[in-house]
Amino acid sequence: MENNVKTGNLSLDVLDADGAIQETAAAVAGDTRARFLAKAGLLGGGLVGSSALLGLNPATAGAQSATRDIAILNYALTLEYLEAAFYTEAEAMAPLDGELALFARVVGAHERDHVKALKAVLGSKAVKRPRFNFRGTTEDAAAFAATAQVLEDTGVAAYKGQAPRLKSNALLAAALAIHAVEARHASWIRDINGEPPAPTAFDEPLSMSQVLAAVAETRFIVAPRRRRRRRRPRQAPTPTFTG
C-alpha cells in the first residue's frame, strides 16, 4: 500500500522557528522533560499556557486523556488554520477560474468552518493562528492545484492517525466527520488534476510527527514578527542637592 503523501527527510528544526510545531508535538507526546519547559518559557503565545497542556501535572489518568485530546484537537486546529488560510489567500490572489475557483471557494468555506468548530470545542485552550507564507502557491493556479492535493491528502492521513488516540467519543465522532470531508476534498482535487481520486484500496495513516515534518518541509508556517523590545528606560539621574 503506497503512501500517497511525500514527507521527505527533514527535521522539525528546519522550520519550526517559533516552536509552535514542536510545542504541539511535545504536548501530544506528553513530554515532561525540562527542555520543553524551557522552550515553553521562551515562546510567546501559541500553545504556551497552562502547564497542564504539556502534561506536566498529570493528576489522574482522566486528566492525562483530556490533556491528550486537547493536544490532538490543537494539532487538528493548526492544520485547519493552515488549510483555511491557504484557500482564503488563493481565492484572493490566484488567477483561478472555472472549477478551480469553485473548488477553492467551496473547500475554503469548509476549512474555515472546521477552524470555527475546533475553536468552539477548545474554547480558551485553542492555539492561536500561526503566521503563514505560502511561498507562491496561492498566486499560481497550477501550484495551487498541486498544493491543495497534497494538503488534502495529508489532512486525511493526519486525522486518520489521531482518531484511535482520542479518548472522548464525542470528539472521535467529530474527527471522523471532518476526516471524511477532507477525503472528499482530496478526491475532488485529484480528479480535477487528472490524478486517481482514490489511488489505493486502503488509505494509510500518518503519525503526528510525520505530518508535522511534512508541514515543516513546506515552510508555510513562519515565525511571528518579533515585537520590538522596549528599551530599558534610562535611569533618571539622582537629584543632588546643593547647599
Binding site: A180, R184, H185, A186, S187, W188, D191, F202
Partner: peptide, 21 residues
C-alpha cells in the same frame, strides 16, 4: 477503529469521485 479508518476515507473518496463525474 484504526483498520476501519483506512477504509472509510476510501469510501469517501469514491463518493466524491462519482458525485464529481
Amino acid at each position: 477503529l484504526a483498520a476501519a479508518g483506512q477504509i472509510v476515507s476510501v469510501e469517501a473518496r469514491h463518493a466524491a469521485w462519482i458525485r464529481h463525474i
